[in-house]
Amino acid sequence: MPEGHATRAATDDLDALQKRRAESDAADRVLVTKAQQGDRSALGELLQKHGPGLYRSVLLPRLGNEAAAKEALSETYAKVVANIGKFVWQNVGFYPWLRTVALRVALDQLRAKKRLVLFEEDDLAREIDAAETATPVEQQVSDHRDREAARAQVEDALGRINPRYARAIRLRVLEERTRDEVAAELGVTPATFDVLLHRAIASLKKALGERGQAGVASEKDDE
């Protein structure tokens, strides 16, 4: 494709994206206004529209399991219902506000329940802080960024352990390939692979635990 055509196509895509976002925001604004006047169905529509993305891109990756993510989603909705009256439309749409509320709920949950997850309290606190400075983006773009951030967190965690262990986890746990296939790829018997994977997980737990302790130590130093 000639360069001029490619540029025009990119500009058209951007225009279409902006138009779609503007339409979506306009629809959301109407729903927000109705919800603030007490219209439950409007609020329900808003949550139906934005909730699934929020769950999949924000809550589940950060909280690490489905039960915790669903609990956080319920709590987020409860806060939205209670605070929708305080929400002031600021031309960045509804989703950023919803996402900030969800991140705060997730942060509270991480503080309350010490579980082994990839995201730490500090990570979420930084994200909440960043949420306020970020320019408004379409929810899809925001979802994509959140998903990329989660994957980067996984890569970071795997980078802390022996590369062979990291590879075992990547192939079996993340790519969900069969045990025999992965064992063959790593050049070991399936039985040996079981032990290898167990050790890989134990090593990752240890690495994450050390990271957590380092975080606590630096907090104490700051104090």
Binding site: P61, L63, A69, F119, Q153, A157
Partner: peptide, 8 residues
């Protein structure tokens, strides 16, 4: 946690 972060 790994799976949730990698492919929720």
């Amino acid at each position: 946690a790994l799976r949730s972060a990698w492919n929720p």
